[in-house]
Each structure stands twice: as C-alpha cells, then as structure tokens.
Nucleic acid binder design. Sequence first.
DNA 1: CGCAGCTTTGAGTGTGATCAAATACGGTGG
DNA 2: CCACCGTATTTGATCACACTCAAAGCTGCG
Lengths: 230, 230
Amino acid sequence: MLCPFRQACRHACGDSALPLAPGRLRLRAGDVLYTQGRPALAVYPVRTGGLKQVYESRLGWRQVSGFYQCGDVCGLEANEPATHNASAVALQDTECCAIPIEALHGSLADPGLRTAILANLRRQANRQAELLVAIGSMKASQRLAMLLLDLAAEQVRRGITDGGLTLAMTRNDIASYLGLTLETVSRLLSRFRSVGLITVRHRKLRIVDPDGLADVHADPDRVALRESVE
Amino acid sequence: MLCPFRQACRHACGDSALPLAPGRLRLRAGDVLYTQGRPALAVYPVRTGGLKQVYESRLGWRQVSGFYQCGDVCGLEANEPATHNASAVALQDTECCAIPIEALHGSLADPGLRTAILANLRRQANRQAELLVAIGSMKASQRLAMLLLDLAAEQVRRGITDGGLTLAMTRNDIASYLGLTLETVSRLLSRFRSVGLITVRHRKLRIVDPDGLADVHADPDRVALRESVE
DNA sequence: CGCAGCTTTGAGTGTGATCAAATACGGTGG
DNA sequence: CCACCGTATTTGATCACACTCAAAGCTGCG
C-alpha cells in the first residue's frame, strides 16, 4: 500500500525562502517555507495567504497536519535541539515575516507578543488534539463538518462574518488532513450542498446553515435525516 | 453515535494525588493524577508503574492519546496559561515524583535535567505526530504493529531486551489509542499470534519476530502472506 | 487551442464496526 | 477454600462506510 497522500511537494530551489532575510518573505503556491528535519532558524508569522503543515513519518508517509492562515505563526512546532519537525508549504501566494529565534527570545519579554505567541501555541496544540480524536473516532462527515466550522471560526476571528470563505487547499490536502481520500471529501461536499448546509463551487465555499453543520459534527446521521426531509 | 471510548474514568476522591505533597506520589489503577482543564501545578516523572493520557474533546469524546511508563514525564502537555490539556490516569499501581512548576523553572538550569525534560518533550511530540499519521492513513494491523514495536523499544531503552513485555493497558485503551475498536485489537493480536509474530496471553506479550512485525508495520498485506506460508 | 492538474461522479469491494454470545480472570465475601 | 460477580477478552456473523478503480468534466495556464 502506497502513501495515500499522493501529491508531490514541489521544492522551490532548495528552501526558496532564504531564512535570514529580515522582514517579509514572499512565497508562491507550492514553495516550501521550511523543511522537516532542518535546523529551525526562525518563526514565521503569516501576513497574507495560506500554508499547509506537512509531516512525514519515519516510513515516509506524508500527511497534512495543519493549515496556517493570516495571524498564525509557522515554525513553532520546532523542538530543542532546534529542528523543525514538520514542513510548511505555501498553498497560494503568501507573505510572512521571519523572526530569527534569537530575536524571538528577546521579543518574548514583550507581554503583547508573548501572549500572542502562547495563544498561537495553545491553539495549535488544541487543534492537534481535536484532530486526533476526530480522525480516531469520528465519521467522515463529522470530520469535514469540523474542518469547515474551524475555518469559518478563523474567518470570524479576523472579522469576516458573512460565512463566505475561499479554500486555499486542494481536496487532496483536505483529505490528507482529515484522514480520508479526496473522493470521499468531494462526495461529502456535494452531499452537504445537496442538503442545503453549504454552497460550493471549486474553491469558493459558503456556509449556509452553521447550526446544521454543528449538528452533523455532533451526529453524522443528521445528514441522512436532512436528506429525507428535504 | 456515542463516544466509542466507553470506559468510565474512576476519579479517586477528586484528584486523589494532592498535588503539592513533596517527593513521591502513590497511585492505584484507575486513580487520576491530574485532570484536563485544571491548573497545572507540577510535572510528574514516573518512577514505577504506568499511566494513560486521556484527551476529552469539546464535544465530550474521550480518547487515549498516550501512555506513560517509567522514565516518562507526565504533565508536560500543559500550556500557558498553565492548564493541563489532557488527563492522566494510572493503569496499575504507580509511583511518581511531583515537581512543582516553580521548582521546575529552577531545575531547568541544571543541564542534565533540562536535556532529560526536552528529550521527553520531543519524544512525546514525535509520537503524537506519528500517531496522527498512523491513525490517518495506516491499516489496523500496521497501527497495532507500530504500537507493539514502540512498547518494545521503550523496554530496550530501559535495558530489558528479552522481548517480553506486560501490557498495563486494556484492549479498550489500546483500541482508543489506535482509533480502532477493542474487538479489532483482540482479533489482530490473535492473528499476529497465529502467524508466529508474537505470543500473547492476556496482558503478557512476547515479540517473537520483530522483523516480521516491522514488515507488517510497513505493509499490512504481509500478515496475509505469512498466513498462507505458515 | 491543448495539456495537465483538480474535481466530480459512478460502480464494486473490503476493512473494520456493530451486534451478540461464550469464556476467562480477579477480586470479594461467605 | 470455594462460589460468585463484574470486568476483560475472545470469537463469530453481518453490515455499512469509506476505499479503490475508472472515466468524464471542468479550470487555468502556457
């Protein structure tokens, strides 16, 4: 059995983001911000765009383990001795800052920055744990509903509340993240649409019925119920 | 659909381990060392026995997210503001130390202790990531083989190399940890035994063919192959 | 315009969940 | 010491969910 995450990572000329350039970094879709196993030299707050975190296991199985958007800080997953234990790959045109870790140690004195960093760390840890439970014991429809609600909550956190969002990632990325196949994700999105929970067209998605999605997240049979009602 | 992890946690008179007793703590099977959501007051290196880490998601789904044995440090999963984001429950009679976090900050000056703590952190983070990939995209037999190899490696790390190990956790705990059902775990153990990879009797387990297990970890079809060969 | 990658949809299959029952074990009290 | 009970484990039969294989459509880019 091959690794189900089939998408090859396009490494842009080594690590395209030369790590120590001060200030902003500009990435294009597919560019690698940093690579698992390499020394961690900086952390990267995201200004615009989006990235995926990709973990590669000892046996070479790759899986998307997180998504980064504006306001998230990439590179915090590194552990001592300072080595990244996941890679970050841009999903679209992306800009981020680079804060060298020496500078980071100083910045942590600033209470505002510190709480921001810690909040990021906690959010990522919680998401990781929730993801584990989701993949470990929830049905496919529940997992997808969870992701959509998470993405929507992110939007709200940064002030956009109209329920419309643009998926930066492919179906394959979503599938890998949720421990599913891309076909299943595609089918479920269609099903959610057909029962009136969302509208989707390619990467444009709108959550029509957040409460309904929350119901599905809590109990996957709700989708079937809605189907018969509709 | 109910939470598939059906086992109730027996809370021993609140948090039975009064957190600030200096030195050793003594727990019996089922006792709760600390509870998710409560303030993190200390970290707990394990001296003898074993514990499980249990995470409860926002919707109340419980899942075993790790196992602690002698040499592991419980409580490091806490994040600022200092709150445990998982619970720890003893699997058997267990002794551990309690290092209050104020004392911890001092101890980190000691290079030996610091590297020990950091090594623990890294090991736990890696295991978490490997587990995510395993649950997300590996077959049941691969996941179980992975766990058995991990447990065996732990034994080796502490000097016992005869391949015999005692499972402190129930089949249900294993199943929850691997994102399976207890029936599947039981069946797989029987299958592994019938093809000569291991011997099992209740909690006593011996790895007969480590290379064979590694093969199964890499490719689940190997079990079937061995079946026909045998 | 043509190609490559992403997405959708369909049909069939298999793994692991579910439901169910029998057995073995460990602790407790008579 | 033995009988008993609750819990853990094993094993069987059946079924559904999600995977696999396959083909066609859509999109964007060169």
